[in-house]
Amino acid sequence: MSFDNICKYLATEYPAAFVRWLLNYDANDIQILPTELKLDPIRADTLILLQTNNQILHLEFQTLPTSVPSLPLRMLDYWVRLHRQYDRPIEQVVIFLKQTNSPLAYVEQFSSANTQHRYRVVRLWELDPTPLLSNPGLLPFAVLAQTNSPSSLLQQIAERVNRIESVPIQGNITTCIELLARLRFDQNLIHQFLRVNAMRESPLYQEIIEEGLQQGEQRIVFRLLTRQIGEIPPEVRSQIQQLPIPQIEELSEALLDFSQLEDLSAWLRSHS
């Protein structure tokens, strides 16, 4: 599970915490919207619909400021699609995770000829960690906030984690903290403060392990299929990526009998 997927998990599990942090008010009537946008679909990170004021909070999480197309153009593209699809006020916030001196991390608008589009940018390394320590859903971001003493910051975060009464939630939050902390701190320092056992027993950690195993199996199968029948079309690759691990293992044996793409397509149809 990538860093941005961890952030998406936190935003969808704790949307009210993000609204309080970024918009500075409490919202109870919240809905998580589908992140795939129509018209040659692209996928936003997190879309939170605030029913109370009929507003959408659009969050994008970035480790690096460079992207193709550029981030400002993507934010404009997202806004146009969201406006067309939902026709309501949209607040866009880009959250940069990893500290950088790149000027691109300080760009807060798209500008071209007569077109200008503004959005908010949050650079975590510039923030006071105190507000992020107040809610379990924001705790993982505190490891990336401003500090002159990494040990003191990690100690504070560990103390807040230990106050979480639910064992599964504590494990999930510990997992998120540990993974995001890798963007900044040495793993040995992290493990001085975080309970690794709590992380490894958490449902989220098990899901990450499962996802890693699945991706590893997929890479092997794709290499074998390419050798056996040639290049795999994108739509067929997408079907294979949806298979659970047991079916991927079945495919890794069945593909030895394939001689053409139709053999693979027939196998996928019979296992759909």
Rank of each mutant, 00 (worst) to 15 (best):
Q218W: 08
K8V: 12
S151A: 14
K98T: 00
L132C: 04
T35V: 14
A158V: 08
S134A: 13
P140N: 03
F193I: 06
E126S: 08
P69R: 08
L97K: 02
I245T: 06
V19P: 02
Q187W: 14
H58K: 11
A44K: 03
E108K: 07
A254G: 01
S265T: 03
S238L: 10
Q62I: 00
I95Q: 01
I6E: 07
A181P: 00
K38L: 15
A266E: 11
C7V: 01
Q260E: 15
T115P: 07
T35I: 13
Q187I: 15
D45E: 08
I173P: 05
L23K: 08
I229A: 05
L37Y: 08
H83K: 10
H58L: 12
P244E: 06
Y9Q: 06
N5Y: 11
M75F: 06
T115C: 12
Y9L: 08
E231R: 12
Y9A: 04
I232G: 00
Q206C: 08
R123C: 10
L225P: 00
D29C: 11
N28E: 15
N101P: 00
L189M: 10
S202H: 09
N172R: 07
E13K: 15
F258V: 01
L104K: 04
P131F: 04
P203Y: 08
F141Q: 02
T174M: 03
Q85C: 02
D128K: 02
Q228L: 10
V143I: 08
P34S: 11
A142M: 06
T115N: 09
Y119T: 07
S202K: 08
S2V: 03
Q247P: 00
Y205H: 13
P103A: 04
F185R: 00
V94Y: 01
E211H: 10
T226K: 13
Q239P: 03
R160L: 09
Q218R: 15
R20C: 13
V107F: 00
N53K: 14
S270F: 00
D26I: 12
S70Q: 11
N54M: 13
P140W: 06
L194Q: 05
L82Y: 02
S70N: 09
L138S: 04
P203N: 09
L268C: 01
S112H: 14
M199A: 12
L138E: 01
A113Q: 12
L138H: 05
Q156T: 10
S102Y: 03
L255G: 00
H191V: 07
L73M: 10
R195A: 12
V80T: 14
V68Q: 14
L97M: 05
L132A: 10
L139G: 07
N197L: 14
V94S: 02
Q215M: 09
L64W: 12
I48Q: 11
E201C: 11
F110N: 07
A181D: 02
L57V: 13
C7Q: 03
V121K: 04
M1I: 04
